[in-house]
């Protein structure tokens, strides 16, 4: 294994170039002075200026964030319940259907989820008079439904990994079942809850297809706004918006990575210390 895998490293470099050249190009062209998005016309920040003065973008972003916050939180609660149910209650009536229901949305094409939700909402409105109007509520409900199963997957996996003896140990030491859940189970699966929440949040923030079906008058999320603009072709202000999103995500991920890396290094150092103290 000491030989350098030249071929592999070459492909890796090519792959990363493939990943990042389009994004970089987009960022560079966001500073393009020309109206024509693909022809360089000198450096300018005017698209950023026009972006910030655009009320529509701000409103859409706010709406998207609201929906993502609510749906991620609800999805985490529901998804965690489902994950705990699957991991802890081995046998219950309808378990097969239940485990089918938490996997199916993962592989269901978004178009189908979209039209089925829309037909459901339209028919419900006709049959029981609810929802009166599609928009914020219907988008949020659809987002909760299809992001909760991601949370379920993450939580279920973590629950299966966890040493069940620690729950028994808590009981053995006098904790009643709710105390076991509060003191042991939830703290131990909290990383899974956090990553499940983040996943649900991003899924909601990023979704176009399901949102476009379940939306109604006046409810334009950021992806829907971008979608309507992009359908007309490449425009420089979208480049500017994209660059800002990439920057935000990049900074967040880099920070998270840095924190995690630090924690990992400290953990390793502490473990080494533990071994030494063992002697």
């Amino acid at each position: 294994m000491t030989r350098r895998p030249v071929f592999l490293i070459t492909v890796l470099c090519f792959g990363f170039a493939f990943f990042y050249i389009p994004i970089l190009s987009m960022v560079v062209y966001s500073f393009n002075g020309s109206r024509l998005a693909t022809v360089w016309g000198g450096f300018s920040t005017k698209w950023y200026v026009s972006l910030f003065s655009n009320r529509q973008v701000g409103a859409a972003l706010l709406l998207s964030l609201q929906i993502a916050l609510i749906s991620a939180t609800m999805a985490t609660i529901l998804g965690a319940m489902a994950g705990i149910a699957l991991a802890r209650f081995r046998r219950f009536r309808g378990r097969t259907l239940f485990s089918g229901l938490v996997t199916a949305p993962l592989i269901m094409p978004e178009v189908i989820t979209g039209i089925s939700s829309l037909m459901f909402f339209i028919l419900m409105a006709q049959w029981v008079g609810w929802p009166g109007q599609r928009g914020f509520t219907t988008i949020t409900l659809a987002h909760i439904t299809f992001s909760m199963v991601f949370v379920t997957t993450v939580v279920h996996a973590r629950m299966l990994q966890m040493d069940r003896a620690i729950e028994e140990a808590a009981m053995d030491l006098g904790a009643r079942p709710w105390q076991v859940l509060r003191d042991v189970t939830l703290p131990v699966i909290s990383p899974a809850l956090l990553s499940g929440w983040l996943l649900a949040f991003t899924i909601s923030l990023d979704d176009v297809v399901i949102t476009s079906f379940t939306t109604g008058p006046g409810a334009t999320t950021l992806p829907l706004l971008i979608w309507s603009k992009v359908k007309l072709g490449v425009t420089p202000d979208i480049n500017a918006l994209a660059s800002l999103i990439v920057l935000t995500v990049g900074v967040c991920v880099a920070l998270a990575g840095l924190v995690m890396n630090r924690a990992e290094k400290r953990r390793l150092a502490e473990e080494r210390l533990a071994y030494r103290s063992n002697e």
Binding site: D163, A165, E168, A169, M171, D183, V188
Partner: peptide
């Protein structure tokens, strides 16, 4: 009598130390 009311404690094979 449930486990949490028994005057019995256990040392688990995996030790089951609360990791957090």
């Amino acid at each position: 009598v449930p486990p949490w009311e028994r005057p019995v404690h256990m040392m688990f094979q995996s030790y089951a130390i609360f990791p957090h």
